[in-house]
């Protein structure tokens, strides 16, 4: 399947990528398509990049659909545990 479906999210944070170097993660690109490396026919793929930076400065995730849902749930659970006064 090549759905071409691609979703973007603007972000403000950091990611540790190639060469163990940190970089500004300004954008997440999310899509469900063939992985490059994961042994699954399709995966939920996330590219964390600095849109103004070197293309090689990228953290790439290829997760099975089940794994991606588990990640979403974990993020939601962690955020839900944050006291209101710390949420910005």
């Amino acid at each position: 399947m090549c759905t071409y479906t691609t979703v973007h999210a603007d972000m403000d944070g950091s990611a540790k990528g190639p060469g163990s170097a940190w970089f500004h993660a300004g954008r997440a690109t999310v899509y469900f398509d063939h992985p490059v490396h994961a042994m699954a026919e399709h995966t939920l793929n996330i590219d964390l990049t600095d849109p103004d930076g070197d293309p090689a400065r990228r953290v790439a995730l290829e997760l099975t659909a089940e794994s991606a849902r588990a990640l979403v749930a974990a993020i939601q659970e962690a955020l839900a545990a944050v006291p209101d006064e710390l949420k910005v």
Partner: peptide
Amino acid sequence: REAPGASPDDAAAVARAQGG
């Protein structure tokens, strides 16, 4: 054009992010 000299998977990520 999107990613001269980048590895193929990184270049594909840039091309996809820019709309193909």
